[in-house]
Design a protein around this nucleic acid. Structure first.
Lengths: 198, 198
DNA sequence: TGACTACTATGACGAGTGTCATAGTAGTGA
DNA sequence: TCACTACTATGACACTCGTCATAGTAGTCA
């Protein structure tokens, strides 16, 4: 995740995503992003003629893609994957991140939704597709585990809802317990045999 | 919920809470709050010498208390309350609100956490206690329904996590489906007979 | 060498921010 | 009438914000 090798453009997108996680959209200043990215300020209007909206949108896009890839990594590490094991892996990943950074950074998509859902349609759309980019590999994995398409869509959405909420509560309480809690409580729902539930 | 009868102080707190729901903490300007509240600007420093932090903290406090009272209202309307029925009532409440306001307003506590968890300890604490104020009546109700204290704490936390996440996703998608989904999926977990689960 | 493109540097603009200082008004109780 | 308190009015300060205009540099083709 070191950002030295990539070009300044990518570094700015990455720095924006990280800043979103800490302070939300309106709390993210472009000047600070440029500093964090160790990028030239003049490049902002060159690479992102669409202004802050474009930068934030690309940061969300990056975040969605990254999260999706992370799901793949978790899956590839599992001998016999089950829905609950997958969910637990994702949740544990977040718990470790929150712990390591002392709850400083949450989910950038959540930040975008909270700040912009009503005021900035560009960003809202980007957040929406980022969530979808993240959810899709979860659903695919569930299908591979024998769930129907419909069921996989439902369960993957449930996973993301519970995770986002748990991240939120964990940051409020400064305690990762909610994350572990949702992983434990959802296990029976997620692992219910394919035919048993609607 | 009309704000004409209350004093300017209360109106400012209320207006702040509503503004938080739309644009987050950093997106909430004090001058706009004053206008929305139809309050004198000079009263800001008089009633809230602690500045914006105090105002936001009180708004979160108000929101937590309001949400808790709402739980009570739902319960009082139920002949034979069950955990899943209670959760569904809360969720439906939110779905109706989101629909009515076209997804413009989310949860003020979520907004505070996302924007301030890392940068503003005062607000973070206020968000934490607001969540707790909200969760407590849920847990109490679950105890009344025969769940153990431990179990009630777990389930009430699960409810709030799923709800907060579903609100988030609903606003991103501009669709209340995630809310209805979590209510449906969590029902078996919530209604599992007291002794059946850990 | 010269034109052309990609990228960077920098200063400024106007608007908005939270906060504060200062002065004013209305009402109450002595 | 006087003092005192509660509350309001308003202008200013010192920022920060996103955006833009303009100029400059480096590199690449012809």
């Amino acid at each position: 995740m070191s950002s030295d090798t990539r070009g300044p453009r990518d570094r700015m997108v990455y720095a924006t995503a990280q800043h979103l996680r800490r302070a939300g959209v309106s709390g993210t200043g472009l000047r600070q992003v440029v500093i964090d990215a160790d990028a030239p300020r003049g490049s902002l209007q060159h690479y992102f003629p669409g202004g802050k909206d474009q930068l934030v949108a690309e940061a969300l896009d990056w975040a969605g893609t990254w999260a999706a890839a992370r799901v793949g990594e978790h899956l590839s590490r599992m001998r016999r994957p089950t829905p609950s094991r997958l969910f637990t892996a994702v949740v544990d990943d977040w718990a470790a991140d929150l712990d390591a950074r002392e709850f400083a950074r949450g989910c950038p998509v959540a930040a975008a939704v909270v700040d912009c859902a009503d005021t900035n349609e560009t960003v809202r759309r980007a957040a929406d597709t980022a969530l979808e980019t993240w959810r899709r590999p979860l659903a695919e994995a569930l299908v591979d585990m024998g769930r129907s398409r419909r069921r996989a869509d439902s369960l993957s959405t449930l996973m993301l809802c519970a995770l986002e909420g748990a991240i939120l509560m964990a940051r409020a309480r400064r305690d990762t317990a909610p994350l572990r809690l949702v992983a434990r409580e959802l296990a029976p729902v997620l692992d219910a045999p394919p035919g048993a539930q609607r």
